[in-house]
Write a protein that binds this DNA or RNA. Structure first.
Lengths: 369, 369
DNA sequence: TCTTTTCCGTTTAACGGTTAATATTACACC
DNA sequence: GGTGTAATATTAACCGTTAAACGGAAAAGA
């Protein structure tokens, strides 16, 4: 005949029985079941307040669970429910913009009960493939991806979609892939920067664009071209330089630009890193910003306001973008029907600083003209 | 009577049978077993090249596995083997130094077959606790932790240890906790910076230290104090400012320093962010670096060579530190005995730049004296 | 012919949890 | 005394995998 439950609990609490339960292994439902002479399922249901368990039993189970610091094994649950509450995040690197975005993703995910696994592809297509494979194996509940600049083939992304695994693209969105996404209005960013330079009276505006196949770079350039045309300025191919997202390349490209017969009187770089590179070359040449030459960057990294002269830059709200991405992702998870692929587009804003702000205002310029 | 295996394979390949296997669900070992009229475990052993399976059988199994894109379910394996091949990484934020370290950790972990889960505490004690709990629930195989600046109580860390879960601390190491760790020789860093300033002829050297309870900050200060004494300079309490790791605070603190009757003629900041803040205040005051005042930062962030004047800084080899940490961690996992807690200490190196390099060399100074 | 070995597989249990179907018990009612 | 019905607990199956123990048949040895 089994002992009465309260007495048993007392003995367990006082460690007279089952002292092995206090060992290294995590307590399981089975331990509690054995201790209280109940079946596994009774314990399970008691913990989850099922209606058909006696109140006394529930109390005893819960007390012992508390006592033994019982915690359900997530692995077992995941196996059963086919979900891991984990989001796989693939990003090309951990630079300022992306780590800020990850921060945003992390924050929202945490709140929604998800843990993120961040993998960096390091701008390498090969590593992106490996990361994708890894995360697929890890059975993440879904993917949040920003592709590397090397990525020109998207089979690995399509594989995710074929398996009907939720996917959100962000920042570096891919046109060939149709899925929910969050991105900056890069054209608008290009327009903002270029129009500002035009407004400040610059006439020969060069652009340091990123790698040729990178969508975000091309869109920013599109904005640049549109704005030139709109203002009656003829785009000049020699003023358009493609180079890696890299300070060194930007430095060298700028040096070449400045060595031209008719050098530019303003430069728009599609990242702040590149703006810094450009700035070094400009200073080396002995030119003054904003008088001799104007400079506008992109991303609005803190460094832009730290250097001298401070650099005008286009803010892309990376943190908010990260949050929006995670929110969209979670929304998608919760809507069981395959969601119409929503596209969230963030509007950029230009922060004007010393590098491009000539003293003359628009009005002044009109008067003097 | 069961059909001969090759014939069966053919039919499966041609989708005559079991077309449901081509459905959304991942193929399992059971699917293969049913298809080939074998038992689950035979399939399992065939896939793993167990010796007591007929070669023909193995071939058939492997062929079908390939065909159906079979991939073992990690969750099931983890449940069985009690290991998830996942490392929980807790860091206070994703600034330049830490993201570089995470890059290093990630690289080594990936190679060793581990995936990392990065959680940011955002310098908040509360979030650090939450993160720890989450990762414990996720049953990570171990922890790599750098504590937040708010953390003064370490019960959550001890809890990890009590559960005998492998733990490595890095960068912000905690004295009260005895475990393998990787950190910078912060005292040496403080010595390098201070001795350099002394060598350059600066006499009244101030220090912008970080939060009071932050070990790394205090150690750097210790190096500073030691060096002053060694060189016969008397430390002055008014020259020691504790403030948050934050550019704004550093800016204000520097303004106050410079407003003193006897202001410092050099400032050592224990981060580059703070150095930038200090620099802004110095420029605002109209002082010239390095002539009127010297400045040395810490971390050797890229920004130090981008600003003008460029800032001398102590390099802490963040990427290598990250790699070393992950290596130590994996080594620990593989050595089943509780490892004697190894402590890896990285030696810093000073990079001298414009902000502190007076033209005079040591020899010049001796001559003129 | 009977036992032993070898070969090739299968069965079972386990990991830790949930859940649907099934007992068991007690009590009221006819 | 049977029957119906709550109330409560148990069994067994399942998620996907592996490891240990066991099984059956054929070949080899006595």
């Amino acid at each position: 005949m089994p002992e009465p439950v309260p007495e048993l609990c007392r003995r367990i609490r006082q460690n007279e029985l089952f002292s092995h339960l206090y060992m290294e292994r995590q307590t399981t439902i089975k331990d509690i079941a054995v201790a209280l002479r109940l079946s596994k399922s009774t314990v399970s249901r008691a913990l989850r307040d099922a209606p058909d368990i006696k109140i006394e039993t529930k109390k005893a189970v819960k007390a012992l669970a508390e006592e033994l610091d019982y915690q359900p094994n997530k692995l077992a649950l995941s196996l059963l429910n086919r979900q891991t509450h984990t989001i796989g995040v693939i990003i090309p690197n951990l630079d300022y913009v992306l780590s800020t975005m990850v921060k945003g993703i992390d924050e929202v995910a945490l709140e929604a009960g998800y843990t993120v696994m961040v993998c960096q592809s390091d701008e390498s297509f090969g590593r992106e493939i490996v990361n994708t494979k890894r995360l697929l194996e890890s059975l993440v509940d879904g993917f949040i991806v920003s592709v590397s600049s090397e990525t020109k083939v998207f089979e690995h992304i399509k594989k995710i979609q074929n398996k009907k695994i939720p996917l959100v693209l962000f920042d570096r969105v891919v046109n060939h892939i149709s899925c929910p996404s969050v991105r900056l209005d890069n054209i608008a960013g290009g327009v903002l920067a270029t129009q500002h330079l035009v407004d400040q009276g610059y006439k020969r505006i060069a652009i340091l664009a990123g790698p040729e196949n990178l969508n975000i770079s091309n869109k920013r350039m599109e904005g640049y071209l549109q704005t030139l045309k709109l203002n009656g300025l003829r785009p000049d191919k020699r003023m358009i330089i493609h180079c890696d997202f890299n300070q060194q390349y930007a430095y060298e490209a700028t040096k070449e630009l400045l060595a031209m017969k008719q050098p530019p009187d303003a430069i728009f770089t599609i990242s702040d890193r590149m703006a810094i590179g450009a700035m070094l070359a400009i200073k080396e040449k002995g030119l003054q910003m904003p008088d001799d030459i104007g400079l506008v960057g992109f991303n609005n990294e803190p460094v832009t306001s730290l250097v001298s002269p401070s650099i005008s830059s286009v803010e892309m709200y990376a943190f908010e973008m990260g949050k929006a991405t995670a929110k969209l992702f979670i929304e998608m998870l919760n809507s069981d029907d395959t969601m119409a692929h929503q596209e969230i587009v963030i509007k950029p804003k230009l922060f004007i600083r010393e590098s491009s702000k000539r003293i003359i205002t628009k009005k002044d310029r009109n008067n003097s003209a």
